[in-house]
Amino acid sequence: MLLLALSFALYLFSLWKRPLLYAGLIFQIAYLVSRGFELGRLPLVGPHDTLVFFTASTVVFSIPFRLILKKNIRFHNTVAIGASFFTAFALTSAQHNAPLPPVLKTLWFEAHVVLAFLSYALFAIAAVLGFVYLDEKNSTVEGMQYRAILIGYCLFTLSIIFGGIWAFLAWGTYWIWTPKELWTSILWIFYSFYLHARLKQWWMGTPLAYLGIAGFAVVLFTYLGVSLLMKSSHSF
């Protein structure tokens, strides 16, 4: 937990000294690795571990965009504030230390969850880029938002496919009518809408930037809202 608390502090202090964001990321990855060794599996069950994985993925994915945006303070600050917030959330969430039930010990589950959180991280970056675009109206930033969403969408689609295969093997059906599945569909359709809207000139620029930001609100509800507020087959 000390490593995680340190990464929280470093993310926060990176608002003043930017390289500290990388130091925070190193501590967070070290924490994830130590959790993995402690549990003897990928630490991807429950809000605590998934929040840490999601935050670390978001910071990792922000690096190539930072290299292009170089001195963009707004991009850096939004990523740093977001990383601090989600790390603080992870610090206050209970750890899931129980052994995995046999049904979760499969590569399908690991691939499903890893891909889902990598896509969530890319959608988070896309939302940050949306804020940057609204500030600067720079078409390069809009193009970067599109790339983040396109790759995120592809990973999310793969996650859904792997989840369906796993559900069929584990529970005999590839689709279960629960709030999580419904919100996952909403999220997938939402970004399908974004990708199709980008083909129309009218949507280019500000409307797409807003869509990218709104999409992350749907991500947050699908990930945290459904798990915390509704009964679902998913515990995260």
Partner: peptide, 18 residues
């Protein structure tokens, strides 16, 4: 685009009702 929009509205409605 219109029908993806309608689809989203219906899914939102379902997410509230279900």
């Amino acid at each position: 685009l219109w029908f993806l929009g309608f689809l989203l509205i219906m899914l939102f409605a379902g997410a509230l009702i279900m």
